[in-house]
Design a protein around this nucleic acid. Structure first.
Length: 635
DNA sequence: AGCACGCCGACT
DNA sequence: GTCGGCGTGCTC
């Protein structure tokens, strides 16, 4: 009998620590257990074992071991703990995304396997030779093993398959780690990038690739996770949760397009891949690569600090930014038609648009009032030219619409979506097939024949031989959005779409002027990222500072903000009303105050969870979101 | 969260 | 005198 120190699976912030239980000797660190806790049974993970406990009272006994597999590795526990502390959250909440649920069948098969660790692959050429070897010797401004890579656009333009050069280059770096017998973790925003990266990896490391994908079935996911537990020279690829993959000797951690919002975890404590990767790099000393076609302002900040060494690969394809004349908004400019016409005979042409459907917005033809859903007040739109208006939020179809303010029955279409753009292009190019790719119509690949591919941002299919031209439409509409990161997001979305083009392709960008247009023609992404970051500094917005949003009842929010305000280098914005009797404040703080702020926030969260249960003080519960990616959205 | 403990108001 | 309201604290 020994003592098992267990983290119990409870959302209560005050239980986010280890509790001791008596356990049999087969209960080893990392296994899942069920323990008696507060009068009932709770699942948990054994974090460590010891001969004795320093708890004063009588220890309960572990009820049973749920699985003998040590799924929580020490390095992942350390990571979860640090990530939770940084975000004023619970470590178990991190483990929920880090560790897939047990599946009996794959586990039985795994337990009966003959443990075979694959041989390391042969070393080969990579874009940053020696990067992985430098692990462990990372210091500010001296030979960093941490780099920000501006990836080379374009790809392998074979007629049957397209793999971006970025993927080939990351795969080469992964092979460097595997050749040393270490693991590589490569984190991508989406399964689109995952497909390319897996293809590139298989070309250089064969079957030493493990995909940890939330889209997999539960057994497949657990099977892949168990393969990662086995260790050895393997490359682990997956979306944001893969950053927590078990890898005892991690040689490389690479994040592709760290600025993509898909890297933001929507579950508490909301850590984004880049931040987790930075913590993991610090803990493991692995080489860290933050790569993308665009540079995030967060990466720019780390470059300016000298923590990341910037590396610029390749050169963007020729890009023509075109401003729009008055009254042209939403139209396809003549130059875009011209470019498409010249390129289409030779192969596919990509047209990127802002919104899906036919008409993304509708308004009353008589009074101009935006058409809204009678049920939920959501905006109405039209999916196809001949479709009835439907609500974008609840999906209700409004065949017989009447304006709520003037009673008018006629609608005008505002803007145009992918389907309408496709219709118009189809008329302009009568003999060319048109393919629509958006949230409703997923399309991952197109072949090398002439066609127009109309896609919303992030839904662009890969073209086997590379696109012959890319039209980036709706710039003015994208940039009209009210958000801290519009420009950064737009440049990233345009840069990634453009990278799907063949090297000799022409790129047309409509509705972008000034700094943003320049960003799309410059070779080096630094100038734009630096200018964006300078703006944020001037305004004291992230990532120049960090922010924590505090939502809840007015009294509670005020109390939390006051507690954090006692720390230096902080200030608060708000509170603003967010409905249902709740308010929101934004606490801004310098990076240097981060540890103290997170600590104070955590203390307030625990206090709110334990002391505020008197019937009078029971308002909306306080919720804290540290490093909200879009802190001012919806204000 | 649930559950135990503990201290003031109406009651058989 | 005590039964029970809920505020407070704890969960190995």
């Amino acid at each position: 009998m020994s003592v098992a120190r267990v983290v119990v699976e409870s959302r209560l912030p005050q239980l986010d620590r280890l509790f001791d239980f008596r356990a049999d000797d087969d209960v080893v660190p990392g296994v899942r257990v069920r323990v008696p806790f507060g009068g009932r049974m709770l699942p948990g993970f054994v974090v460590e074992t010891a001969a004795e406990s320093d708890f004063g009272g009588e220890l309960h006994r572990v009820e049973r071991m749920l699985s003998p597999v040590p799924v929580l590795r020490p390095e992942v526990w350390a990571l979860a703990r640090a990530v939770a502390d940084r975000a004023a959250g619970s470590a178990v909440d991190v483990l929920r995304v880090a560790i897939p649920g047990r599946q009996a069948r794959p586990e039985t098969a795994w337990l009966q396997r003959e443990a075979v660790v694959p041989a390391p692959p042969e070393p080969g050429e990579s874009i940053l030779p020696g990067l992985v070897e430098r692990r462990g010797r990372i210091a500010l401004r001296s030979e960093p093993g941490v780099v920000a890579v501006a990836a080379e656009p374009g790809g392998d333009a074979s007629a049957t398959r397209w793999v971006g050069r970025w993927a080939v280059e990351l795969a080469g770096l992964a092979r460097d780690a595997l050749a040393r017998g270490e693991q590589a973790i490569l984190v991508v925003p989406d399964h689109r990038e995952q497909r390319q990266l897996v293809a590139a990896l298989q070309a250089v490391v064969g079957d030493r690739v493990v995909e940890l994908d939330a889209r997999q079935s539960n057994p497949d996911r657990y099977r892949a996770f168990l393969r990662a537990i086995d260790g050895g020279p393997i490359a682990i690829v997956g979306p944001r949760s893969a950053v927590y993959a078990p890898a005892a000797s991690l040689g490389l951690l690479a994040v592709w397009e760290d600025g993509d919002p898909l890297h933001d975890e929507p579950l508490s404590p909301y850590a984004t891949t880049r931040d987790v990767a930075l913590v993991r790099q610090q803990q493991s000393g692995c080489a860290l690569v933050l790569a993308g076609h665009a540079r995030s302002t967060e990466v720019q900040r780390l470059v300016e600090l000298g923590f990341l060494e910037p590396v610029v690969r390749g050169r963007p394809p020729r890009t023509l930014p075109t401003a729009l004349q008055d009254g042209q908004a939403g139209r396809i400019p003549a130059i875009a038609f011209q470019v498409a016409k010249e390129a289409i005979a030779d192969g596919p042409v990509l047209v990127q648009v802002a919104r899906p459907g036919h008409a993304p917005a509708l308004a009353c033809a008589r009074c101009g009032e935006r058409a809204r859903c009678r049920r939920c007040q959501g905006p109405l739109r039209r999916a196809r030219a001949d479709a009835s208006p439907s609500c974008a939020w609840c999906g209700a179809v409004h065949a017989a619409w009447a304006c709520s303010s003037c009673g008018g029955r006629a609608l005008v279409e505002l803007g145009r979506g992918s389907v309408r753009t496709a219709d118009e292009l189809g008329r302009a190019f009568p003999n060319v097939p048109v393919v629509v790719a958006d949230g409703q119509h997923e399309r991952l690949e197109v072949d090398d024949r002439p066609m127009l591919v109309v896609a919303t941002r992030g839904a662009e299919p890969v073209a086997a031989g590379g696109y012959r031209a890319v039209l980036l439409l709706d710039g003015e509409r994208i940039l009209a959005r009210e958000s801290l990161r519009v420009a950064e997001d737009a440049v990233r979305a345009w840069s990634t779409a453009r990278a799907l083009a063949r090297d000799d392709a022409s790129i047309v960008l409509t509705g972008a002027v000034g700094r943003i247009a320049t960003a799309m023609t410059a070779r080096d992404p630094a100038a734009f990222a630096a200018a964006e970051l300078a703006d944020r500094r001037a305004l004291r917005f992230p990532p120049a500072v960090r922010v924590a949003s505090v939502v809840g009842g007015p009294d509670e929010v005020e109390r939390v903000v006051r507690a954090v305000g006692d720390i230096g280098a902080t200030d608060a914005l708000g509170p603003v009303d967010v409905g249902d009797g709740a308010v929101r404040s934004m606490v801004r703080f310098d990076y240097g105050a981060g540890v103290d702020v997170a600590h104070a926030l955590r203390a307030e969260i625990v206090r709110a969870a334990t002391q505020s249960r008197s019937r009078v003080a029971k308002g909306a519960p306080v919720r804290v979101h540290v490093d909200d990616h879009e802190p001012f959205e919806g204000i």
